[in-house]
Design a protein around this nucleic acid. Structure first.
Length: 493
RNA sequence: GGCAUUGUGGCCGAGUGGCUAGGCAGAGCUCUGCAAAAGCUUGUACAGCGGUUCGAAUCCGCUCGAUGCCUCCA
């Protein structure tokens, strides 16, 4: 029996604006598509938060026993600077500016993307398709939409006819917009455009002579529009209808709205059952923007080479910090908030490290099963990781009380306690214990053990200058001695 | 200007009609040779103004602020 049969998950569906019981289309299987990055620059911290949120969701679904097919694309073509006639492809622009082949740009930033996500301990998706690898599929979809009459060709480009679509479908239902309002708002702009209406969006763009990224199509040489790739790849790997579509809040409109329109125009029915949107990350209360300098790259955080934070933070601390907020809330990153998380994270890891050594007794003074279910309840409530975290600190308190002899635990409960704690912290939240490798090193622990022994001998002889020297110099090296009831242990800072 | 989200104690951040979220920081105590660590105790917070209600941080309205989208952005 799988966990998902007993743990009832609810998710907040952006499409309906409500928390709904999660029921996959096919029992035991979940198809999830998440919009990946456009690889034209280094991945920034805000991007990482989104992917980390969906990594946590992926991990939890797997933990529940679902067989998950997680598709996250790489946009390596088609993402235009704007939708106007002279709109330039982001990759192509970067390639032109840096005098590189477009695929060199793609390769460079794809590698950067993977390397950063790996540091944050994100699991790789099941499939990571690229837009350029699915040009044929995209062309097929355009043909299909043209046949159905929801698109028109002009000068070698093909545009989606939003007004036509809206006659029989509802354009704007995801973002809560009404087409009439949008038209009313843009009427005065009167763009000089080959599009029939400013709301229309490109399915295929004609490549001008100087354009370096180009593919042949029934409408001449060109390249696909941005929204199309996600429809093509999600349909190919997950089917015409799948369970979860995720992405950043900022993609809700127009990108996801257009995806819905394309898929409905093509297949006549909605593509996605649950739309999940991760919220933005701000920096010192303000939007992250390269233009204002209010921006930080992950590697700059890890190395400490930046003007924003007082010191370096490890990927796991940053991940813990992000997991302390709900994925649908705006999260503000600041030095003060991060260093608070760092201390909390350390406390959590120290407690976990000490669990194996807990002494057991004939009875448990608290209900481990109950505590465990509280953790699941939190996760089942739309992946409420902050509540799960609060519950983890409840465990930390119990662990420390057991160490002090003020609480007791049976051997059986201890095993359950450790297993559950590891499941929540490492499997679901995806945190990594940077101490454990060091702590588990026999050499280090025996060396420190020797020093602890020498210190205790000095203390017994009231030679406090020696004992304090050992303690303080170890502390200076980042090894902290903890005098407890049953002797001295150590932890790493 | 339009649409959406949002405004919680010193900081971060859950909750969402009545019952302590949690972390960090601060104060007191216990333990300790002194510390540290750990434990215990401690915070009368919910932007403002009205309304609904026996009761609202939680629902409704208005005002103010923030964020996202409306051209590209996770």
């Amino acid at each position: 029996m799988s966990l998902y049969q007993t743990q009832k998950l609810k998710v907040y569906n952006s499409l309906t604006g409500e928390k709904e019981v999660f029921e996959p289309l096919s029992e035991g299987h979940v198809g999830m598509y998440v919009c990946g990055p456009t690889v034209y620059s280094n991945v920034h911290l805000g991007n990482c938060r989104t992917f980390m949120s969906f990594d946590m969701i992926f991990r939890y679904l797997k933990h529940l026993g679902y067989k998950v097919r997680y598709v996250r694309n790489i946009t390596d073509a088609g993402h235009l600077e704007n939708d106007a006639e002279d709109g330039e492809d982001k990759i192509a622009k970067k390639a032109r500016l840096e005098q590189l082949e477009p695929m060199e740009v793609v390769q460079q930033y794809t590698l950067d993307f993977h390397s950063i996500l790996q540091k944050f301990n994100l699991l790789p998706p099941s499939i990571e398709p690229t837009a350029t690898g699915h040009i044929i599929e995209q062309i097929e979809i355009i043909k299909n939409i043209l046949e159905k009459g929801f698109a028109y060709e002009i000068n070698g480009s093909v545009y989606f006819d939003v007004e036509k679509f809206n006659e029989t479908h509802e354009y704007g239902k995801l973002s809560g917009r009404k087409l009439e309002d949008m038209i009313a708002n843009t009427r005065e702009l009167a763009a000089q455009d080959e599009k029939k209406s400013p709301q229309d969006f490109a399915l295929w763009k004609k490549a001008e002579a100087q354009h370096i990224m180009r593919w042949p199509s029934p409408w001449g040489d060109g390249f696909p529009g941005w929204h199309l790739e996600c429809t093509a790849m999600s349909t190919k790997y997950l089917g015409e209808t799948f369970d979860i579509h995720g992405g950043g809040m900022d993609l809700k409109f127009p990108h996801h709205e257009c995806e819905i329109a394309q898929a409905e125009a093509c297949n006549g029915h909605a593509p996605v059952k649950y739309w999940l949107h991760a919220n933005m990350l701000t920096l010192n209360g303000k939007k992250m923007a390269k233009s204002t300098g209010n921006n930080i790259l992950p590697n700059e955080m890890f190395s400490g080479e930046n003007n924003i934070l007082s010191k370096p933070y490890t990927p796991s601390v940053v991940r813990f910090f992000m997991m302390q907020a709900h994925y649908t809330s705006i999260l503000d990153l600041s030095d003060e908030a991060l260093s608070a998380s760092e201390k909390g994270f350390q406390k959590l890891m120290d407690a976990i490290d000490s669990m194996e050594k807990l002494t057991t007794g004939p009875s448990s003074s608290f209900n481990v099963e109950e505590w465990k279910q509280k953790g699941y309840d939190a996760m089942n409530d739309d992946f409420n990781t902050p509540m799960l975290t609060a519950n983890l600190f409840e465990a930390v308190k119990r662990i420390n009380l057991i160490k002090e002899g003020k609480e007791t635990i049976t051997q059986k409960d201890k095993e359950l306690f450790i297993e559950t704690m590891h499941g929540f912290v490492f499997d679901i939240l995806g945190l990594e214990n940077q101490n454990s490798a060091m702590l588990n090193s026999d050499k280090l622990s025996s060396v420190v053990g020797l020093l602890i022994q020498l210190r205790n001998e000095a203390r017994a002889n009231k030679d406090f200058s020696t004992s304090d020297k050992i303690r303080d110099q170890l502390a200076a090296m980042g090894i902290q001695l903890n005098d407890g009831k049953d002797g001295t242990t150590f932890s790493l800072n």
